[in-house]
Design a protein around this nucleic acid. Structure first.
Lengths: 347, 347
DNA sequence: CCTGGCACTCGGAAAGTGGGAGTGCTAAGA
DNA sequence: TCTTAGCACTCCCACTTTCCGAGTGCCAGG
């Protein structure tokens, strides 16, 4: 939409890079020196004035240099930024960290920590709990006469457990039998299907069922109706990295941000959006639409299992972040995670 | 050790209470007015001078009022503080929150959130994973030809699971048989015992064993040797509450503190100490022995299951915290949690 | 031993100052 | 027409100065 002369583009790029590196408003003289431009500060001033009219930069005050606006960052990211591939060193570092951990669930959880360590920002990962996953097995174990441990296993290896308090005591063999009947009845169906059938079965007249299956259905229902299945938890790591940025150290802003990390609601919505599209997505400042994320940018990328997008990971930092580096890290991490997960499932 | 005249005690108490409430150095005049003392500011000054010599208060500078020292807080907590019982309202609030959640593991986890919400400080809970707990059942489930899900259940209802990659593929019935043999062999022993026997069994010549048991032992070993059992995770909630305190907003201090929350190592050690003794324990400032906790106090209390201490919970806040309130909240929460857990196990 | 009085100290807010970085504008040069 | 040097101007920031008030310590009298 905005079109600039090549020279103006070059200038804007240099300005933003300088500002990202130093965090100080950039003046015409510094810019000429730093970027090795072949025209004079006066010319730079003229061009910067144009850029200011276009809303790509602004001066905090008359005698300060220029600072990128959110629109400026957006233009920079869309048009000027050539994301170069990560150094092999970094890639292997990430790869090593991802391969060290074999259990898919743990793997995904550890990724937020990995992202925060590599970027020195805050890492976030939305963990999928697919509800179309296959049901594998249910177990009833008596812990005490009134407490039964129900263990639900899905075909992708998730294990969910819950302690329930049945109406009457069951013997170990009764529980065993109930589990067997239940497993036979529901083998191979998806978790969603099982949940629906359970609800239907509970509505139906209990006379239709064997007494023992009836009990099994009742107990199983308490696990299948739990929030854990289909719930999408969010892992956030490295919040304290953000304390290092002076532009965020405004206590009120920081407080809001940290509350958003705790509440997670806004972040979840944001990551949902990201899940709808492929590749790296970038939300700069107000673009995210959440007040708490003002003066922050979020870089996200979905990850896949066997070609299907199942979750999102990303990084949160100040708008003044090293976009090229962060983008490539997020991108590579998403790819490597997808690979590790698909690999894991396949063999 | 230190003994004060009743008047000096009264003065110190009033001073500390005032300082806790306002956060500003307390002058002689304010103290007289605020605490309704029947002697003059000059007298108060004399007494404060004595208190300063004893190291219980200090002035930030010549013409400021007095501020409690850590020693002063310690004396206050040990001698002057009469912890009044919590209002019934608060108690029932905590009680409700604790009863809402039935699963012991979740219950314990939610307590840190509860503590942080009620105190507006940071809540911490050390979750026990006792290794002397009884082994209940092991399951082997084939996820794919090369991936076996191992599920370990203890008698207190903990469920641990791990995906392993056995050397050769096993059929479902082989796995079932292996689990049966294993469960028969180790039924009723403690997790620790099982772990030890597994190691011993692996050392012994494999000729002694049935081939199938040998496989079971090898696979089980990978789960029992995992760090999860006997590992003691730590839950921390409400870190961002601490952002509200000006005395901590020094960025460097805050950073250290948040890093301690992430690393958890120091906190774990501290809570271990607390677990060794009964009742509420208070660590004021440097008493904790951890640099990161400077100008913070930690109030902890162990909680029990059936009369035996299994874990610790507590609150971290600035040294200038409302000790009486925090102490009673921590105390009540520990008692109620103990009750809820013991109740749960018993019936 | 308490208390009023008084001199003293010190921090912090308010106001003043100078320097420097940076701008916009203008006019001359390419 | 575009670029550039020059210059006046602006404004922040860091520094100093000033001033006030809160608070202290000490002394002398009750």
């Amino acid at each position: 939409m905005v079109s600039l002369t090549p020279r103006a583009e070059r200038l804007l790029k240099a300005l933003i890079e300088q500002y990202i590196a130093e965090g100080q408003p950039v003046g015409s003289r510094t810019l000429v020196k730093q970027a090795g431009l072949e025209f004079s500060p006066a010319t730079v001033r003229n061009i910067m004035s144009d850029l200011e009219e276009l809303g790509l930069v602004r001066s905090p005050h008359t005698s300060a240099g220029r600072v990128p606006t959110e629109r400026g960052y957006r233009f920079f990211v869309d048009t000027l930024l050539a994301v170069q591939p990560l150094k092999a060193l970094d890639t292997t570092h990430i790869e090593d960290r991802l391969l060290a951990d074999q259990d898919p669930q743990q793997l995904i959880e550890s990724v937020s920590g990995l992202l925060s360590q590599v970027t020195k920002l805050t890492g976030i990962v939305r963990v999928p709990r697919r509800t179309d996953v296959g049901f594998l097995q249910l177990d009833f174990l008596a812990l005490s006469p009134t407490r039964v441990l129900v263990i639900l296993v899905t075909q992708d290896g998730q294990v969910l457990n819950r302690v329930i308090h049945p109406k009457r005591p069951y013997s170990a063999s009764e529980l065993q039998q109930a589990a067997n009947i239940f497993n036979d009845a529901y083998a191979g169906r998806s978790v969603d299907e099982v949940r629906r059938s359970l609800i239907a079965a509970l509505r139906r007249d209990s006379e239709d069922m064997q007494q023992i299956l009836r009990s099994a259905v009742e107990m199983a229902h308490q696990v299948f109706s739990g929030e854990e299945i289909g719930d999408s938890p969010l892992f956030v790591s490295g919040e304290s990295n953000l304390l290092a940025f002076p532009e965020l150290s405004n206590t009120e802003k920081l407080r809001r941000l940290f509350e958003a990390f705790t509440a997670k609601q806004d972040l979840l919505h944001l990551l949902d959006q990201s899940m709808a599209s492929q590749g790296v997505q970038i939300f700069i400042g107000a673009e995210s639409g959440y007040e708490a994320l003002a003066s922050c940018s979020v870089v996200t990328a979905p990850y896949e299992v066997d070609g299907q997008i199942v979750g999102t990971l990303g990084v949160i930092g100040p708008t003044r972040m090293s976009y090229d580096r962060v983008i490539s890290i997020v991108d590579v991490t998403a790819r490597l995670l997808s690979g590790a997960l698909s690999h894991g499932v396949a063999g």
